[in-house]
Design a protein around this nucleic acid. Structure first.
Length: 350
DNA sequence: AACCATTGCAACCGCTCCGGA
DNA sequence: CTCCGGAGCGGTTGCAATGGT
């Protein structure tokens, strides 16, 4: 037995709103307000619409000061940074962009922003792939000379690696109002350096909207937030390996300890581009496919839904593959069903 | 010009949260 | 404390507009 519908589905109109309906709804709300009861509102004004539909129409379209389209670079940055830090919590993101609705931002992300970012990445991947081909051939030659039955990517067979890419350095000035950080704290988030005693993971921030403001709970299994790419040098991270005979488990450690998040908003855009530029095709394809968070970093369950896992997995893949050299290789080794990827040659366990 | 594919956006659906009884 | 109903949210769908062949 399901829940009773909020309205009589047979007697409500669906689909696009007519100008007359818009005018009725707008006039009533501007005069009387919503009255705190959307369900009853359509009957009051003689609209054959579901209350939820009225609410949506008002919030997304009729409400004063609504802006549609024409997102600025600054807005792009805010959306990206918040998406990475708090995921697809569109209403929270929208709250930081005056005049924007959650629906608008959601649509903008899904239809433009994501593609825009991934488009850059694909170009870079093509360039990088050709470089990798050389290493692939090297590896193949070497494995033919020194075959190890049943073992792939064993450390002793790894080719010498090119030096890691030079990361953009953060600007030296410290932005006094780290707006994103402040926002997240304001929303009830937590940073590792705010609560040193709770550094159970190297980067243990997670936005926790379900936790009342200032009541922080440990999120030991939570997904880690993307730290400033430049604040975490690839050289300062290690990836330890434990093999149980059937699968290989990797753990990412940042030897520098807890890291602040979003150290400098000014370099965010460059960093984001850098992140995306430097990811492999498999992670990229994760946007269409799926990587659950259960397969992330420590392999522990996060308790998130599959849908949520997908989002966080995607974004955190982007983050970690940049932060930790060879993170993609970690992923592939702990997810045996994922086909082997040539660029694993870039990773060498320490 | 016609057809098909893609894109963008408005709207819907179903779920969770939350406050009041 | 439990239940119920409304509000709010995020994912998904439907369709018109646009672009490509």
């Amino acid at each position: 037995m399901g829940r009773a519908p909020c309205c009589d589905k047979a007697n409500v109109k669906k689909g696009p709103w007519s100008p007359e309906e818009d005018a009725k709804l707008k006039a009533y709300i501007e005069t009387n307000g919503t009255g705190g009861n959307w369900i009853a509102l359509p009957q009051k004004i003689g609209l054959k619409r579901c209350g939820k539909s009225c609410r949506l129409r008002w919030l997304n379209y009729l409400r004063p000061n609504i802006r549609h389209g024409g997102f600025s670079e600054e807005e792009d940055n805010i959306i990206c940074s918040l998406y990475i830090s708090i995921g697809s919590r569109w209403s929270i993101i929208a709250a930081q962009l005056p005049g924007r609705t959650d629906n608008d931002i959601k649509n903008y992300w899904n239809t433009k922003l994501k593609k825009k970012l991934l488009g850059k990445q694909r170009k870079q991947q093509q360039a990088r792939r050709s470089t990798c081909l050389t290493f692939k051939q090297e590896m193949k030659r070497e494995s033919e000379n020194y075959p190890v039955p049943g073992m792939v990517n064993q450390a002793s067979n790894w080719p010498l690696l090119p030096p890691p890419p030079v990361m953009p350095q953060p600007s030296t000035h410290q932005d006094p109002q780290d707006s994103i950080r402040n926002l997240l704290v304001k929303l009830g988030g937590r940073f590792s350096d705010d609560h040193p005693q709770s550094t159970t993971s190297p980067m243990n921030f997670r936005y926790a909207p379900d936790v009342p403001f200032a009541q922080y709970q440990p999120y030991e299994n939570s997904m880690n937030i993307l730290p400033s790419a430049s604040s975490l040098s690839p050289l300062n991270s290690t990836c330890s390996q434990v093999t149980d005979g059937t699968t290989t488990q990797f753990t990412v450690n940042d030897v520098d300890g807890p890291n602040d998040v979003f150290q400098d908003l000014d370099v965010f855009q460059a960093e984001l581009s850098e992140l995306i530029y430097n990811n492999n095709q498999q992670i990229l394809d994760g946007f269409e496919g799926f990587y659950g968070t259960d397969n992330m970093v420590d392999g522990s369950s996060t308790g998130t839904s599959s849908v949520e896992s997908s989002s966080w997995g995607d974004i955190n893949s982007l983050a970690y593959t940049q932060i930790v050299p060879g993170f993609e290789a970690c992923q592939q080794q702990s997810i045996p069903q994922v086909p082997t990827y040539d660029e694993s040659a870039y990773f060498r366990p320490q």
